[in-house]
Computed example of a mutant assay.
Amino acid sequence: MATNKEILNKGIVFMACSLPLMFVGPAVIHFAFINKQQPLFWLILSIGITMCFGGALLAFRGLLKITNSLFKSS
């Protein structure tokens, strides 16, 4: 059983892209809640929530690709 290095690299790239989103998303949400009186509150909040969901989705897909490259026989 050998590791598929191409799929493993794609999984690592997904994980590397999810890491900034997981840190910046909650910071954007916190910034939105600090400035509730601003007219763009809902826009900033929705951007932060989208970033958090995007980071979680990319992390899930990255872990899925990494496990597929390690355990799938091809």
Rank of each mutant, 00 (worst) to 15 (best):
M1P: 04
T3W: 03
T3N: 07
N4G: 10
K5G: 14
K5Y: 13
K5T: 11
I7S: 03
L8P: 02
L8Y: 09
N9I: 09
N9Q: 13
K10F: 12
G11P: 02
G11R: 00
I12F: 05
F14V: 03
F14Y: 14
F14C: 10
F14I: 03
F14L: 11
F14P: 00
A16I: 11
A16N: 14
A16Q: 15
A16T: 15
A16G: 13
A16W: 04
C17R: 00
S18N: 05
L19M: 06
P20E: 11
M22W: 01
M22I: 05
F23Q: 09
F23V: 14
V24L: 15
V24H: 03
P26A: 01
P26C: 15
A27Q: 15
A27Y: 15
V28C: 12
V28W: 05
V28Y: 03
V28K: 04
I29F: 00
I29N: 04
I29L: 10
H30F: 13
F31P: 01
F31L: 12
F31H: 08
A32Q: 06
A32C: 13
F33L: 04
F33H: 07
I34E: 15
I34R: 13
I34L: 15
K36R: 14
K36T: 15
Q37C: 10
Q37I: 05
Q37E: 15
Q38E: 03
Q38H: 09
P39N: 13
P39H: 12
P39A: 03
L40N: 12
L40C: 02
F41A: 06
F41P: 06
F41L: 03
F41M: 14
W42Q: 14
W42T: 14
W42N: 14
I44V: 15
L45M: 15
S46H: 10
S46F: 12
S46W: 06
S46C: 06
S46A: 15
I47T: 08
G48I: 08
I49F: 11
I49G: 11
T50I: 07
T50G: 11
M51S: 08
M51K: 04
C52L: 07
C52R: 03
G54R: 00
G54S: 11
G55I: 00
G55L: 05
G55P: 02
A56C: 10
A56Q: 08
L57V: 02
L57A: 13
L57E: 06
L58T: 02
L58W: 02
L58Q: 01
F60H: 03
F60A: 08
R61C: 05
G62L: 05
G62S: 14
G62V: 08
L63S: 01
L63R: 07
L64P: 00
L64S: 10
K65Q: 13
K65M: 08
K65I: 02
I66C: 03
T67R: 10
T67C: 12
T67K: 11
T67F: 14
S69C: 08
S69P: 02
L70T: 01
L70V: 09
L70P: 01
F71G: 05
K72A: 05
S73A: 13
S73Y: 14
S73D: 10
S73Q: 11
S73M: 10
S74R: 06
S74T: 11
